[in-house]
Amino acid sequence: MRRLLIAIPYLWLLALFLVPFGIVLKIALSDAALAIPPYTPTLALDEGWQSVREFLSQLDLENFVFLGEDALYWKAYWSSIQIAFVSTVLTLLVGYPMAYAMARAPRRWQPALIMLVILPFWTSFLIRVYAWIGILSNEGYLNQALLAIGLIDQPLALLNTNVAVHIGIVYTYLPFLVLPIYATLERLDESLLDAARDLGCSRTRAFWSVTLPLSRPGIIAGCLLVFIPVIGEFVIPSVLGGSDTLMIGKVLWNEFFANRDWPVASAVAVVLLFILIIPIMLFQHSAMDKREVTA
């Protein structure tokens, strides 16, 4: 009985992660072909052991070698990481003060403030990203407003640039960062701040030496919750970004749907997964640390 209970999460992992990953890996090791499905070889299990062996002998690492040779892919990975890093930092700069203000707000307001943070999820993500076109375009609300108050005399070219991509990412991923930080700040014992002040800290000093280090688990969790999905982000760069916005999600989409090169697209996905595993393991590690401290 106990073995069965332990087996359930492993079966889950096997069915929903390892099997699909195996399929993608298999395609990544195949060659593109004009066929349905558009790759070769295909596995025919009903033709016996001989055909399986033949199938295995046709798999190779050609596509991964190709990824290494063509600078486009490495540039796309690198640019995705850079964009993800910059926008995570920007999200933190916007989100931390928000979370701090929420945690310091009167208790009775806090549920309403959390509600406001979650509220955007009630509308489709795609529609919200499209709405930014209306704000950021040359004739958009932002340029109109800036022109009206005389801050600029030429509309700013924001749409279809990396700036727009960053704005879109910060906007979309803000709740994922605000909520974990809020959770750690809200639990912060206020007598710790009194103690810091009592021991000679000004309010600002007490923030840096007590509040900030104690909200570190929330900061790490929030940043990884932004950083990890943003690396593979496809919708925001393709809607708000320009032709020179290079992100691996966009490359993947092009390989898959425009080039119909499933094996290369799969190889791109496999490499992406290995790049993401590093921050995911960091995240797990920090979550374990946190559990240890609270236990």
Binding site: S191, L192, D194, A195, R197, D198, L214, R216, V293
Partner: peptide, 20 residues
């Protein structure tokens, strides 16, 4: 006069030790 400028220290009921 704020707490950080008083030659006074306090031991808090919850102890308020810094967990980090």
């Amino acid at each position: 006069v704020p707490p950080n400028e008083r030659a006074v220290n306090m031991m808090f009921q919850s102890y308020a030790l810094f967990p980090h």
